[in-house]
Design a protein around this nucleic acid. Structure first.
Lengths: 166, 166
DNA sequence: CGGCAACTGAGACTCAGTCTCAACCGCAAA
DNA sequence: TTTGCGGTTGAGACTGAGTCTCAGTTGCCG
């Protein structure tokens, strides 16, 4: 998995540059993150580490996630749930999310026309954008075929594996 | 304030239709919400009620907000912060938000081209949308003129009057 | 009157996330 | 080798938004 190692190196560089140390805990976390998960939350990550027989405390997970966000390797996103999720910043292109409220699937997309139009709107309103965040909630193709209905749109609760694990 | 009373009536109708009761607490809350606030969070509302010398418990505030959302008079939104905000559903047209990360101002906009393009994307991905959510974070005109810089985009914390009040 | 269903406030609880603190771990200067 | 020092860690206390429970209240209807 050269991909993963490239990320490990990048993160180490970032740490050293900040006068911080590439500890075994940090490396284990970033390896886990970049080898499997694409979208995940802190708890999922914590659980995975436990499965891997690597003892890492909650505090360290959160601290490392903060560093990863600062380093630009990971992004913190809202995905329609009431807590944060994280995702890889793979290439560099910003993307948005379709979130299936039945099965929890997350489909990414990037659309230049959408981006352009947003820039236009900001210009018109004299607003200087730094960041944006678009989620479209709904039902994915697979779930629609199965005839699944979404939860009421006012209060979306996705199926959440984390909860079940506890 | 005929506007407010129209909303009170609408909510009462909704309640009766559901076999629920338009109590004094519920009416007081909806009156407060529709007479001043446009965007607010549960805590702000609770505080306002205390100021008005109306004793209403936190549980009731949350319960009423849930009912208001169900009735369609109020919408629950993410505004870049780590807890929910609520807003009036005035006309019916969906709108999105520009959120100034310096002063906390919220600017609404509706853009049909943006909506249309989103529908196109969903079609292409065979996704059935029920709802969407777009926030553009950045700096508003007034703050930009004052030369204010935004917080780091990775971790936006808006100025939050609620906290200061406590 | 009695019963019943909706309603309320107080406070316990949950859960994600943060913070504190003592212990630890190199490493480098003395 | 010892000492000191900054960064690091885990355990667990803490916070704050939001939810839930429960006992007591209200108002309606037979």
């Amino acid at each position: 998995m050269p991909q993963v190692e490239r990320h490990v190196t990048k993160f180490n560089d970032f740490l050293l540059q900040q006068g911080l140390k590439p500890t075994s805990e940090r490396t284990a976390l970033i390896r886990e993150i970049f080898s499997t998960h694409y979208h995940f939350d802190a708890d999922e990550l914590l659980f995975k580490m436990k499965q891997n027989e690597v003892k890492i405390s909650r505090a360290t997970v959160y601290r490392t996630l903060e560093l990863l966000v600062k380093s630009g390797l990971v992004r913190r996103v809202h995905l329609g749930e009431d807590h944060y999720h994280y995702e890889h910043v793979s290439g560099d292109s910003h993307h948005d999310h379709l979130v299936c409220t039945v099965c929890g699937a997350v489909i990414e997309f990037h659309d230049e026309e959408l981006e352009r139009r947003q820039r236009e709107i900001c210009e018109k309103k004299k607003f200087t954008p730094t960041f944006h965040n678009l989620q479209i909630l709904g039902v994915c193709d697979a779930c629609r075929r199965k005839g699944q209905l979404p939860d009421a749109p006012d209060r979306v609760r996705m199926i959440h594996a984390t909860k079940l694990r506890r």
